[in-house]
């Protein structure tokens, strides 16, 4: 199995007035192709910052990020954009669909940005896979939250990414819908062999991943692996039961 993401001594410091705030402090981790992991921790622990840096959305103050063989530190913003377009998919808590595009057009965007023109059928297929074949020409405002997130998932997978970053993918959904979205996400993930990085507060969701990194004050305070597979073993022991 190949190495997809390698993070070494990653540090991010933000200036705040006269002071400096260390949001991430020497974080290191490695993920192989097909791995699933969750980053958990309280608000302000640096989860989203870590996700942003791993995905090449921001520059680290120190340390390195190597994504699918590309060391991101030395790249320009446009070079990082090209890496993202080729290797990365995103799912957002608030869905982040472009309000002026239909569901189908939203799914097409990453593929079109790659320069492909014949993506309509493929996008339609993706929507069909997430159960929205009959909603392709609806605008985001005409879709429910769950439907919007399905479109978001279809959009995330259309470029067949090597790694998928999902930020609280069920955070804005009710339990039933959230659960359905989780199933969909893990199904697609296992089918396509994509590496999955989840940022979440939802411990049940975290339990379904293979590895869990717990962040506190910008540092990884614990890391657990599910040797028995997602949803069982050490991870389940590490994370207290919910409900």
């Amino acid at each position: 199995m190949s190495l997809v993401l390698s993070v070494s001594n990653l540090t991010k410091i933000f200036p705040s007035g006269d002071r400096e705030i260390t949001v991430l402090d020497s974080v290191s981790l490695e993920l192989m192709a097909g791995d699933t992991c969750a980053i958990v921790g309280p608000s302000g622990s640096g989860k989203t910052t870590l996700l942003g840096l791993c995905a090449g959305l921001d520059n680290a103050t120190a340390g390195t990020v190597t994504l699918c063989g590309h060391e991101l530190n030395g790249l320009t913003e446009d070079e990082r954009a090209a890496v993202r377009n080729k290797h990365v998919g995103f799912i957002f808590q608030t869905f982040r669909l472009i309000p002026t595009l239909t569901a189908l057009e939203n799914v097409m965007v990453p593929a079109e940005l790659r320069g492909r023109t014949d993506v309509r059928a493929e996008a339609f297929g993706m929507l069909e896979a997430v159960g929205l074949a009959d909603r392709t020409h609806h605008y985001p405002a005409q879709l429910s939250g769950g439907e919007q997130q399905r479109v978001g998932i279809a959009r995330a997978f259309i470029n067949k990414p090597d790694i998928l970053f999902a930020d609280e993918p069920t955070g804005n959904l009710d339990d039933d819908t959230g659960s359905a979205i989780e199933d969909l996400l893990f199904d697609l993930n296992s089918t396509s062999g994509t590496t999955l990085v989840l940022v979440t507060h939802d411990l049940d969701l975290a339990r379904r991943t293979g590895r869990v990194f717990r962040l506190k004050m910008g540092a990884v305070v614990s890391e657990a692996s599910n040797t028995a597979g997602p949803g069982q073993g050490i991870v389940s022991e590490l994370l207290p039961p919910t409900g």
């Binding site: 959305l57 913003e77 954009a81 090209a82 377009n85 995103f90 982040r96 965007v109 990453p110 940005l113």
Partner: peptide, 16 residues
């Protein structure tokens, strides 16, 4: 702004 940020996430270049 959100749309622009999103496009950037998906790999759109600055000048695009």
């Amino acid at each position: 702004i959100q749309t622009i940020a999103l496009l950037r996430c998906f790999g759109a270049k600055t000048w695009d």
